[in-house]
Amino acid sequence: MTGMPGAKRRFDWRRAGIGAVTMLAIVLILALWQRAHPYSIQTSVDIDAPPERVWTALTDFDAYPEWNPTLTGMRGEVKEGARLTFETDGMTFTPTVRDVERNRELRWEGHLGVVGIFDGEHSFTLEALPDGRTRLTQNEQFRGVAVLFVTGMLHGETAPSFHAMNAALRDRVESELPD
């Protein structure tokens, strides 16, 4: 009777269930693949100052409004397990500090919404150079299902903001008087 005009079609729960399970499996496979293959942005700058001076400027969150063009309103403690709060591109993030190695590395991890949708692990690494200078490397590993759809934006907008922050930090540190 279902093929007759005017007859009511019954909802096929079996087909709907198979479709839902298939979609869930596809999302899970994409999430697992993307987790193992993060999208990475890495930028570096050499600074004419020792790592201690660069670290001091990098971790002085109260001074960020004076020089930092990308991370505004940075708040929080520089210690493992602490929550940071900052704004960038009109969005507020609250990542968790994962690693602090004074004068060498600051690393945090954050999520946009639910874990696995759009996650980022951000790090600043300071490398002492033989001539008393420092190489600052800023890196972020983006993971999650949504990352697959925004790599163009990450490359076009996020990478330049990393370069801008690196240059501003370099200028800030190099303009300060020597210790």
Rank of each mutant, 00 (worst) to 15 (best):
M1D: 13
G3C: 09
G6K: 06
W13I: 07
G17M: 06
G19H: 03
A20N: 12
T22Y: 01
I26Y: 03
L28G: 12
I29E: 08
L32G: 06
T43D: 09
T43I: 07
T43P: 00
D46P: 03
I47C: 01
I47S: 01
P50K: 03
E52D: 14
R53K: 10
R53C: 03
V54I: 04
V54L: 01
A57R: 07
L58E: 01
D60K: 09
D62S: 12
T70I: 13
T70G: 09
L71V: 09
T72S: 13
G73M: 09
K79M: 11
R83Q: 12
T88M: 13
G90F: 00
T92R: 14
T92D: 12
T94C: 13
P95L: 06
V97W: 08
V100P: 05
E105R: 15
R107T: 12
G116C: 07
F124L: 05
D131T: 10
G132S: 06
R133K: 15
R135Q: 10
T137H: 11
T137F: 07
Q138R: 12
R143A: 05
G144T: 06
A146Q: 09
A146Y: 10
V147F: 10
V147H: 11
H155S: 15
G156L: 00
G156D: 10
E157D: 09
A164Q: 11
M165D: 01
M165C: 03
R170L: 03
D171E: 14
D171Y: 04
V173G: 01
E174T: 07
L177W: 05
P178K: 06
